[in-house]
């Protein structure tokens, strides 16, 4: 009984914290009199991150009496498809468009066209280079990098770290890696960064990088990862050499494999974005714009730091779609 009460208590506290720090920082506006239609463009629904985000758009729109038209480009390489989808939304005369850009520079002309047609564009998660967007909703990649740096500083104090910085030139990965390095170099004289590798964000690349690191450096205390596919690879390399759990792994993102590795104690910390919150805030911002209310130029959605210790109490409803949920 006592344990049940404690569990309930932890849940309540967790939920309250999530509520306080989470989505309510940008509150839901009153339900508008008009039923608006919001076009949503995402890069790739097969990625659970964007499935969660899609749920955020659709569920929030339902609560606000709005309708979502959701288009999936099917991958970051299909810029031509995303442009055509956006043109079709403009022709359909949707009230607003939420855009997760597959390309920063490549989406500039089509955003011009939407704005020219009087349709406000809410830029979410992955940025377009077009400054005419009404508002940007995203995670702060600086904070993601710094959160990992602070955690390692507290846990390690002194030691050696290697970095897997993900795709060279991809802004989100670069910003996280730079923020991590800058914070460590400024605040943590005991921690030494031995090496840094860029690669595609895939498990096989992460595995190879980590194997090479282990061959190069006799002592590694922790490995930083800009994203979790390379972290999963690093975990495999450490498991194979019997070092899982002894070398700390910190990473951004939280796919199901990463969650399992956190529970196993192999991944030490995951810094988790809140895609569902991104979708919700984007819809709220769109409604506010359409109802002629002021919106900020930039909204940072909060992030969560998930470890083996707190994983039971973390509210994942802002991170993932409910199990089995599918768009339409």
């Amino acid at each position: 009984m006592k344990r049940i009460l404690m569990a309930v208590g932890a849940l309540v506290i967790g939920a309250t914290l999530a509520w306080a720090a989470g989505e309510e920082a940008y509150p839901r506006p009153a339900k508008p009199a008009k039923a608006y239609t919001i076009g949503v463009l995402v890069p790739q629904l097969t990625n659970p991150h964007f499935l969660g985000q899609a749920y955020g758009y659709v569920d929030e729109a339902e609560r606000l009496g709005a309708r979502v038209i959701l288009h999936d480009a099917g991958g970051y390489q299909f810029l031509d498809k995303q442009i055509a989808q956006m043109e079709d939304l403009i022709a359909s005369k949707v009230d607003a468009i939420a855009l997760v850009a597959v390309s920063g520079p490549g989406t500039v002309p089509v955003v011009d066209r939407a704005v020219g047609a009087g349709i406000p564009v809410v830029n979410v998660n992955v940025m377009t280079n077009n400054d005419k967007v009404a508002i940007r909703v995203r995670s702060d990649d600086n904070v993601i990098g710094e959160t990992m740096a602070k955690y390692l500083h507290e846990r390690l104090k002194t030691g050696s770290v290697v970095m897997q910085s993900g795709v060279a030139g991809a802004s989100a990965f670069e910003i996280r890696a730079k923020a991590f390095r800058a914070w460590i170099e400024k605040n943590s004289p005991g921690i030494k960064i031995l090496g840094e590798r860029h690669s595609l964000n895939t498990p096989d690349q992460g595995l190879k990088n980590m194997e090479d690191f282990l061959q190069t450096f006799p002592r590694i205390d922790a490995v930083y990862n800009s994203a979790d596919f390379v972290a999963i690879g690093a975990a495999q390399a450490l498991k194979a050499t019997g070092k899982a759990g002894k070398v700390m792994i910190v990473t951004a993102d939280f796919q199901p494999d990463t969650e399992r590795l956190v529970r196993e104690g192999v991944v030490t910390q995951a810094v988790v974005q809140q895609p569902v919150t991104m979708g919700r805030w984007a819809v709220r911002a769109a409604i506010n714009i359409l109802e002629k209310r002021q919106v900020p130029k930039l909204l940072y959605t909060p992030i969560l730091s998930v470890t083996k210790e707190n994983i039971a109490s973390v509210d994942l409803s802002t991170v993932r779609a409910p199990a089995g949920w599918k768009p339409r």
Binding site: Q77, F78, L79, D80, S103, P105, V108, P109
Partner: peptide
């Protein structure tokens, strides 16, 4: 035409076209 529509040079463009 596609380069003008995207106003940038994209190495990924045109896959499966």
């Amino acid at each position: 035409v596609i380069t003008s529509r995207t106003l940038s040079g994209q190495p990924t463009v045109g896959e499966t076209l």
